[in-house]
Design a protein around this nucleic acid. Structure first.
Length: 518
RNA sequence: GUGAGCGUAGCUCAGCCGGUAGAGCAUCGGUCUGUGGAACCGAGGGUCGUGGGUUCAAAUCCCAUCGCUCACCCCA
C-alpha cells in the first residue's frame, strides 16, 4: 500500500498500461487512417503556448481559461545586466518592456510606474532638502544621501524579485487555438485550397476528476481553415466523425446539431434571452441566476429538473437567426440528408468556448456516466481574424475525447482483439543459443512479435509461460533441433506441432500471419 | 469550489457485538531435468491509508487528516 512517502501519479493523471495501451494505439491509428482518407493531414503542435493565446481565443471569462489552466512563468530574461545606478536601471527597464524582452504584463507595468514614482519622489525630497538647507545643514543632506545610497541596492533587489521576467505560458487546455496560431504564423492562407489539419495528444485542465474526465486527457481533433464556409465542409466533417465512430465499433452514438448564429444575430439573441431570463429569475437555481449575466446561453443546457419547464418556454435561437445563418443551417441539413446521416437537432446545445459560431455539434455515446460527450465541435469563423490573422478566414473543427471514447469502446464489448506476442523462443543447451538468437532476429525482421527467453528453461515451463503470455506459437530449440537442423514449432491454441527448417518456418509463419490478418 | 460513498496482500474482498490479521485469484518454487492450460503441496507478500484519542486491549469505537471514486459545476 502506498504510504505518504510513495510517489503516485498526480491527481487526474494516470498510466495507460498494456494491454489497454494497445487499444489506444489501435483507436488512434484508426482515427489517423480515417482522417487521412478525408485528406486531413497531421499537424504537430507544442504542448504549451502563450497564456494570452488561450485567453483571447477561448475567452478570458470562461472556466477553462479562468480557473482550469496550468499556468506558469517561463524563466528567461536575466535582470543582472540591469544593475547599476537607478536611472540606467529605469531606462533599461523601459527599453526592455518596449522591445518585449520583459513581458508587458499588467503587473510589470504597474511595477514600473510605482518604481518611477518612487525614484522621482526621493529625488524631489532630496532637492528640497538641499535647497532648504542651503549647505548650512550638511549633516542632514549627507544623511539623506547615505540612506538613498543604501536604498538603491535594496530597490534593485526588490525589482528583481517583483518583475515578471519570463513569459506567461500555459499547458494547452485544447488545441484549436494552437492550430489557428500556426495557420497565421506560417501564412497558410496562401496555400492552395482549404487547410485540413488534424492533431492528437494530451490536453490539460485542472478540474475535479471523475469518470471520463482527467486533468491530463487526450484529444484527437481536426480543423478545416480557409476562405470557404460552405455547409458541405460541416457535413463532411460530421460524416467523417460518424464513419470513425462506426469503425471503432461504437454503435450507440448520437449526433446532436445546432446553430448558435454569427456574432451579429447571436448577440441579439443573447440579449433577448437575458431579458427573458431576468423575468423568470426567481424560478432558477443560483447557478443559472449567475449565468443570466455571465453567459445566458449556458442556462440552456442546465440539467436541473426544476428548471426544465422554464427553459422549455424560452425563446429559441433557431427563431432568431439572421437570414444568412438560417440559410447556412438549412443547407447543412440538406447536406446531411444527402449523406444519409442520422442526427438530432438540439436547440439547447451550446458550446462553452467563446469562439464558436453557427454550427455546433456534439456526439454522445453510452457507458460513460454523466460525461457522455465523446466529441464536440463546431464552426468558428471569426477566430483567425481575432488572433490577428488575415480577415475572412473561416474555421470548422472538432475534438474527440479519446479517454471517453476508449471507455465507451470497452463498454460496448466490441473492442477488437489485438495481436500480441506471436512467438516465444525457448532453448536448452549451449549449442541451441546461437541458433535461437539468430532465428529470433529473423522472425522479428519479418514483423513478428518475438519473445526470446533470456535464460534456458525447461520446455514444460516455457510452454506454460508462453500460454500465460498469450503467445500464439512456441519455438523449441534443444539438442534434437541442433542435430537435425529443424525447429520445433508448436501452436498453443490446438497443440499442433511440426518440425521445420529455417526457410519452412519463415514461410509458414508468414502465411499464418497473412491468413489470420494479424 | 460544493456534495456523497469508499480506503485490510499485486487484484477482488472477508473479518458480526473491540481480544493485536484471513480467503480466492495472481506471483515464485516443487510434484514434472524435452512438451502448456489441470490438480496437489509449499513459499514470499500487509506497521489493516496516516496521525491522534477512548480502552488492560483497536482493522473494529471516536476525532482529524490524506487519498481514491462518483455526482454537481464545467467540458472532450
Amino acid at each position: 500500500m502506498p504510504s505518504h512517502r510513495q510517489f503516485r501519479a498526480i491527481k487526474g493523471t494516470r498510466d495507460i498500461l498494456p494491454p489497454d495501451s494497445a487499444l489506444w494505439n489501435w483507436f488512434e491509428q484508426t482515427a489517423r487512417e480515417t482522417l487521412e482518407s478525408y485528406n486531413f493531414r497531421e499537424i504537430r503542435l507544442p504542448i504549451f503556448e502563450d497564456t494570452e493565446l488561450f485567453a483571447r481565443s477561448i475567452g478570458a471569462e470562461t472556466d477553462v481559461v479562468g480557473k482550469q489552466m496550468y499556468t506558469f512563468e517561463d524563466r528567461e530574461a536575466s535582470i543582472d545586466r540591469f544593475t547599476g545606478d537607478l536611472s540606467s536601471f529605469l531606462e533599461a527597464l523601459e527599453a526592455g518592456i518596449k522591445k518585449g524582452v520583459i513581458p508587458a504584463v499588467p503587473s510589470n507595468l504597474a511595477f514600473l510606474r510605482a518604481f518611477e514614482d518612487d525614484v522621482v519622489s526621493q529625488f524631489e525630497s532630496l532637492t528640497q532638502i538641499a535647497r532648504r538647507s542651503d549647505l548650512q545643514k550638511p549633516h542632514e543632506l549627507e544623511g539623506k544621501l547615505r540612506s538613498l545610497e543604501e536604498a538603491i541596492p535594496r530597490s534593485l533587489l526588490a525589482a528583481r524579485q517583483q518583475l515578471r521576467l519570463g513569459a506567461e505560458l500555459s499547458l494547452r487546455p485544447e488545441a484549436t487555438a494552437s492550430v489557428a496560431r500556426a495557420y497565421i504564423e506560417h501564412g497558410m492562407q496562401t496555400l492552395p485550397g482549404n487547410q485540413k489539419l488534424y492533431y492528437l495528444g494530451p490536453m490539460f485542465r485542472r478540474e475535479r476528476p471523475q469518470k471520463g474526465r482527467y486533468r491530463q486527457f487526450y484529444q484527437i481533433g481536426a480543423e478545416v481553415l480557409g476562405q470557404s464556409d460552405a455547409p458541405a465542409i460541416d457535413a463532411e466533417v460530421l460524416e467523417m466523425l460518424l464513419v470513425l465512430f462506426n469503425k471503432a465499433g461504437l454503435g450507440d452514438t448520437k449526433l446532436y446539431i445546432n446553430s448558435i448564429g454569427c456574432k451579429d444575430c447571436r448577440s441579439q439573441y443573447v440579449e433577448l434571452l437575458r431579458e427573458e431570463l431576468r423575468k423568470k429569475k426567481d424560478k432558477l437555481g443560483p447557478d443559472s441566476q449567475r449565468r443570466i449575466e455571465t453567459n445566458p446561453l449556458r442556462v440552456l443546457d442546465s440539467k436541473l429538473p426544476e428548471e426544465q419547464p422554464v427553459i422549455e418556454k424560452l425563446p429559441r435561437i433557431s427563431d432568431h437567426l439572421c437570414g444568412a445563418c438560417r440559410q447556412h443551417f438549412s443547407e447543412l441539413e440538406d447536406e446531411l440528408r444527402l449523406r444519409e446521416i442520422c442526427y438530432e437537432k438540439n436547440w439547447r446545445l451550446v458550446r462553452g468556448l467563446d469562439y464558436y459560431t453557427r454550427t455546433t455539434f456534439e456526439v454522445a455515446a453510452t457507458g460513460l456516466g454523466s460525461q457522455n460527450a465523446v466529441c464536440g465541435g463546431g464552426r468558428y469563423d471569426g477566430l483567425v481574424e481575432l488572433l490577428g490573422g488575415p480577415p475572412g478566414v473561416k474555421g470548422m473543427g472538432f475534438a474527440i475525447g479519446t479517454d471517453r471514447t476508449i471507455l465507451s469502446i470497452e463498454h460496448s464489448g466490441r473492442a477488437p482483439h489485438l495481436p500480441g506476442l506471436s512467438v516465444l523462443v525457448a532453448r536448452m543447451g549451449a549449442a541451441a543459443y546461437p541458433l535461437a538468437v539468430n532465428i529470433a532476429k529473423k522472425l522479428r525482421a519479418r514483423g513478428l512479435a518475438v519473445e526470446l527467453l533470456p535464460q534456458e528453461m525447461k520446455f514444460g515451463k516455457a510452454l506454460g509461460l508462453a500460454d500465460k503470455l498469450g503467445a500464439r506459437y512456441a519455438l523449441l530449440i534443444g539438442e534434437d533441433e541442433v542435430a537435425s537442423g529443424r525447429f520445433t514449432l508448436k501452436r498453443l491454441a490446438d497443440a499442433d506441432q511440426r518440425k521445420l527448417s529455417e526457410n519452412e518456418l519463415l514461410e509458414y509463419l508468414e502465411s499464418e500471419r497473412r491468413g489470420s490478418g494479424a
